[in-house]
Design a protein around this nucleic acid. Structure first.
Lengths: 342, 342
DNA sequence: CTGAAAGCGCTTACAG
DNA sequence: CTGAAAGCGCTTACAG
């Protein structure tokens, strides 16, 4: 029967123990284990490795960090670690990149409130993190606490309201334009938008760009613009309101894939088919987009890529420069968009 | 303009710097900051705090950890950090509990493959974590690498295939029975099951318990048992197959809420109403359950609670004992279940 | 009420 | 080719 407490108090062997057993100095042990042992004889190396194996020794990275002044650890501060499906890919990416570089992530969820964020930064700095990543689920403005400048800093899907930090953002404008052009090119003229949360930056940018594209095609959203909150529920309920409009729209731009899924259900209950009776499109390209029948045309937001690029920069694998870096979005054309019924 | 590199090389003040500025010894600084300063005069304390403020000093937790032999950090090893909505609440809970206890989490996603898990454990131990949490998204068996015993260990939603570790599991059997009884009590006799992945432990346990309840009511699933994979897509497609059965079932037990949502769409396209024409129920109680119209009757799986209890135990706030601890599941009765049409 | 000294487990410049 | 010594930034038992 395992006795965790017991076995963990049995104090772990140190490099001094290894040195003693191998009959060499701690210097030699350190050199061998750090692979800086060009000058050490093979026979000595063997003795060290044998002692390491015999003692089941592992290097104490805390002590090493103290000596080096680097911890090989970065901090990740987020607003909603548990919110799906957005945080998943960003966190996964940050994780994968750090893991590939033999580093680790200390994760703190502060909702990005100023007080909690400040104390998270303090705590991370006290733990000697080499860098701090600030990541938001929905693009938003955050206040980066001043002490954070003591470490390397990068922002993912967020703007700093003061100071000029390296910032990685999705190209929302490009995505919104591509989506609107797609619908116009299919021949839609009565296009409705079930937008997301009115206060969200992404919402207003997408609506702006959509309107700009329609305008240059001699069209307009007119009274076919509704605001929800990016949930399935508001997609369902707003879709019902759209169906009361005259003339009826032929295409529905939903604020995200969740809202599009809600719209599917509302349309089905009205006996309307996608895309024959109504084109439906979304944003995000989350897993449900390909699970819906018909599959959903949507704008892929590069959450994984955002996390990846920011983390690579934070770790110094790519340049870390102040200013905004736009990561491309991609229009995924699938079955849910088609020309309007003539 | 911030120059991260520059400012981070400006070496941080140490407790010795604080001592010098305050005109006291490092001993006194340590005592004051650790709040073990009963015996220190107020005037001396003030001098220390003033020096701390002036230098913007923060304690080096790495050095402190080396001295104490504890890191105030735990490791979290998961199989799918990015999988929604399951990992969210478990990770959130682990985070919240550690944060409340002034600890932090080092997160590693290994897919729980043996090799990656072993090296993650090595790395976490090298970083002197005080404990390691192994968490799986879907309940499964894992191999806990032997060296993990050097730290405190707890398992969330997973069984160890060797050794007897503290293990926190959802009470799947109780949930499945409650759900089946609910349908029987409503008067359903032709009940279909759109189960999840056939190989998953939760799937087989739920099917077993469902059949046991039906049997004791003189009923049976008969040929109304189908296996999917816990996705929206299989909920949609299997629901269509159910609709071809004669006599038609009056209730649908879906493997999870995602499959139930898929079933909603299929039913809507067949012109069938929930619950008047078909009762639909799920498992998980994820956010979509209350977003669907009608709201979904489902079995709440205690993901947050699982993460919370395991982390409290790992941190020593609750007993950490080998053996399985079942966390209750809850039947959430909502609008999607009703008596069959007579 | 306060301080000098040793030590946590490493690494590195230096010496031989 | 290898080792003795100092030091990373803390804390603690001991002394006064």
């Amino acid at each position: 029967m395992p006795r965790p407490d017991d076995s963990s108090t049995r104090s772990r062997p140190t490099s001094a123990d290894v040195a003693r057993l191998a009959g060499v100095s701690p210097t030699t042990v350190s050199l061998v284990l750090a692979d800086k042992a060009d000058r050490i004889s093979d026979v000595t190396k063997e003795k060290v490795f044998a002692a390491v194996a015999q003692l089941d020794y592992r290097l104490n990275r805390t002590a090493q960090g103290l000596r080096h002044g680097r911890s090989s650890t970065i901090g990740l501060i987020t607003d909603h670690i548990g919110v799906q499906p957005y945080s998943g890919p960003m966190v996964s990416a940050a994780h994968d990149v750090t893991w590939e570089n033999r580093q680790m992530i200390l994760m703190v969820n502060t909702t990005l409130e100023d007080d909690r964020t400040r104390s998270a930064v303090e705590d991370l700095l006290a733990r000697q993190v080499d860098g701090i990543l600030f990541a938001a689920i929905g693009t938003r403005t955050i206040h980066v606490p001043a002490p954070a400048r003591r470490a390397r800093v990068a922002l993912v899907n967020a703007f700093a309201n003061d100071g000029d930090f390296p910032t990685f953002l999705p190209d929302e404008r490009g995505g919104a334009r591509a989506l609107a052009r797609h619908l116009v090119q299919l021949g839609h003229r009565e296009i409705a938008t079930l937008a997301g949360t009115r206060e969200a930056w992404a919402t207003s940018v997408r609506v702006q760009e959509t309107q700009a594209v329609l305008r240059s095609a001699g069209l307009s959203l007119g009274n076919r613009l509704f605001y929800g909150d990016y949930t399935f529920t508001t997609g369902y309920s707003l879709a019902q309101r759209v169906l009361e409009l005259t003339p009826s729209p032929t295409a529905l731009i939903c604020g995200n894939d969740q809202m599009a899924a809600g719209a599917y259900l509302a349309l089905a209950r009205h006996g309307l088919r996608v895309p024959q009776d109504m084109t439906v499109v979304g944003y995000d390209d989350e897993p449900v987009a390909t699970m819906l029948t018909p599959t959903l045309t949507t704008v892929r937001l590069p959450f994984y890529e955002l996390g990846r690029r920011a983390t690579l920069a934070l770790l110094g694998k790519e340049p870390l420069e102040p200013g905004e870096e736009l990561i491309p979005t991609t229009l995924r054309i699938r079955e849910s968009s088609a020309p309007p019924a003539s």
